[in-house]
Design a protein around this nucleic acid. Structure first.
Lengths: 275, 275
DNA sequence: GCCAAGCGTTTCGCAGACAGGAACCGGCCA
DNA sequence: TGGCCGGTTCCTGTCTGCGAAACGCTTGGC
């Protein structure tokens, strides 16, 4: 069923029925997820525009289920372990993660650099796994972090293998943010870059997200030829990094192909299969 | 509100105020977290005892915030990436995780076995990090998994360093489940075991959770001397495993002490500080 | 040692949001 | 083709959840 053409018109007038209090609870969870420190009821209410009592009542509910932790010493709230437990459930149902992890670990050892696994979420990308390399410094990104699709190795690797319509949608969704002087912030240039990435089968991020950081990303395909995730290796440009590009690229592409094969990918794309 | 304060209700003056729909939404999230496959509205409603329309309305709300993903092909629901993203927020605010991870990776390389990091959550323990060793088989546990405190290396290492009252509370909370013939299921025997663990500074799990699996766990203390987490190494007893116990124990304890030191632990316990 | 300010918690009456049965729609299978 | 199963939408009475205000408690300034 491909009704992508009229979906905007068809889905829009449809009842946007939602439950107010549930929505508020989710906003609270989101907010707590961004905070590294415990927060108070009032502060929380002010941050998200709700009355103290409403926030308090919802927090009690979240607490009763373990999604929120309450510190009896200062009566402040923070995210509970249950939130983590539930969120991790997604990894168990994601075959790509299970299959990819051991390969990522080999890759990290072979190259000695930090390796990432990421998936697309709407118009952005979320890192879902990270294996550190031998380098002491390694705070480029963390599991659960969100990044744009156009500036990272993983992002571009995924981006390039989407349908034309999907690419258009993402590019149109918001202006391409610029992070460094190398960031590709022009839509037309990005399209050309994606075309190149698609042809060569891997993506390079040459200080496009962060100064001094070079990344190589490659997509993972499942049995149906859909790009379900992507991996990347981050190589700092500081110091004397002897790793030649070719070597990094070769390893990343090989690892990606190994994972794709384990996911049942036979080399044919989704588009070809549907045509 | 009906005047219920007349008699027995006086025992419940404590505000048990909670928001019904939020609670239901959390139940839905919990349920989705346990499923590896997408579920339908009706199935979900039956599983948690709610009407189709209520479930649907809540799912729409969760979906709008990205906590739930909707598969347009089969119109089924599953956990959304946002749930993962939010849940991971807890790792960023947990110093022990950040500090421990590189040490765990060294440990995994040094011993070639799988290493875990876990924290206490009420009466149980939750794994929050895992670094695989070189062995091919390694499906003992996964990140986000819950385990009892009395049968695992990590669990006993944490358990042993809690306050007396806390130990009593956890033991009293539910009967000690037996998993293998070695599981310590007797409260008194467990107390003695914990005393031993506390004295020697590490915990051994000799096939107490799973047949054929030997683990060594050690606690991590923060600046205030509180046991905030614990690490463990799992060694399969199958095949020819040459790793002598002493070597595993030495490495685990050393790694735990290194992490504790980085967390500001100076060697004095919380109890001593309070006395 | 006092008072004031700020915090989290609790109360309470009313508005209106929510629950859930039932109808509707569309796809799948026999 | 007809029956079934599941998702979505509609509608109404009920009871839930909202938020201003009151309540204790702790803190810090004078």
């Amino acid at each position: 069923m491909v009704i992508s053409s009229g979906e905007a018109a068809a889905t829009k007038p449809r009842g946007e029925s939602k439950v107010n209090s549930v929505d508020r609870a989710l906003v609270i969870l989101e907010y707590l997820g961004t905070q590294t420190k415990e927060v108070g009821v009032r502060e929380l209410g002010q941050a998200i525009g709700l009355s103290k009592s409403s926030v308090h009542r919802i927090l009690q509910t979240l607490r009763a289920r373990g999604f929120v932790k309450w510190n009896p010493d200062n009566a402040r709230y923070s995210l509970g372990i249950k939130a983590f437990e539930v969120g991790c459930g997604i990894l168990r149902s994601m075959e790509a993660h299970t299959v990819a992890k051991p390969v990522l670990e080999q890759l990290a050892v072979a190259l000695g650099e930090t390796v990432f696994l990421g998936v697309q979420d709407d118009t952005e990308l979320v890192y879902i796994e990270k294996v550190d390399g031998r380098r002491p410094v390694k705070m480029y990104a963390d599991i659960g972090t969100r990044r744009p699709m156009h500036s990272t190795g993983i992002g571009k690797a995924l981006f390039a293998h989407l349908d034309r319509a999907e690419i258009d949608r993402i590019i149109a969704s918001k202006p391409l943010a610029r992070y460094t002087k190398n960031t590709i912030a022009d839509p037309e240039a990005l399209r050309q870059e994606l075309e190149k990435v698609r042809r060569q089968g891997y993506a390079e991020d040459n200080e496009e997200t962060e100064e001094g950081l070079y990344c190589v990303g490659a997509p993972l395909f499942n049995y149906s030829g859909r790009p379900v995730a992507a991996i990347s290796v981050a190589v700092p440009k500081f110091g004397q990094q002897q790793l030649p590009r070719d070597r990094v690229i070769k390893h990343v592409v090989a690892a990606a192909q190994e994972i794709s094969a384990k996911l049942g990918y036979s080399g044919r794309s989704k588009n070809a299969a549907l045509a």
